[in-house]
């Protein structure tokens, strides 16, 4: 794992997400409130739709195509049509920058 400087905290609205592409892989970085940030794989496990246009509600991300829902903190799939959990990665804020640990 390597810690990557992904973006500035102020680039993500509260209760929103940002797409982040790195090393040929796509991720989603979420900001809930303040410095509370998370990182998951960017593609929904149902039909590989990118989550970047999805809706963040508290700690849930909803896929924009079929409303498959995942817990952002754990990646847990919260019911049909998603059955496979989302991979998550450690994320933190340092000096206004979002750092993520990626493989």
């Amino acid at each position: 794992m390597a810690e990557i400087d992904a973006c500035g905290l102020d680039e993500i609205d509260e209760e929103d997400l940002l797409r982040f592409d790195h090393g040929g892989h796509s991720y989603a970085i979420y900001r809930i409130t303040g410095d509370e940030v998370y990182c998951t794989d960017g593609l929904c496990t149902h039909e590989q739709v990118h989550l970047e246009d999805g809706l963040v509600m508290e700690h849930v991300i909803e896929c924009p195509r079929h409303n498959g829902r995942f817990d952002i903190r754990t990646g847990k799939a919260l019911g049909a049509p998603v059955c496979i959990d989302l991979a998550t990665y450690p994320a933190r804020v340092v000096n206004g920058r979002v750092l993520v640990d990626l493989p």
Partner: peptide, 13 residues
């Protein structure tokens, strides 16, 4: 309700 949930997901895909 189960079959049609998946049917409709496909309709949207």
């Amino acid at each position: 309700p189960v079959v049609w949930r998946w049917s409709h997901a496909r309709h949207h895909t």
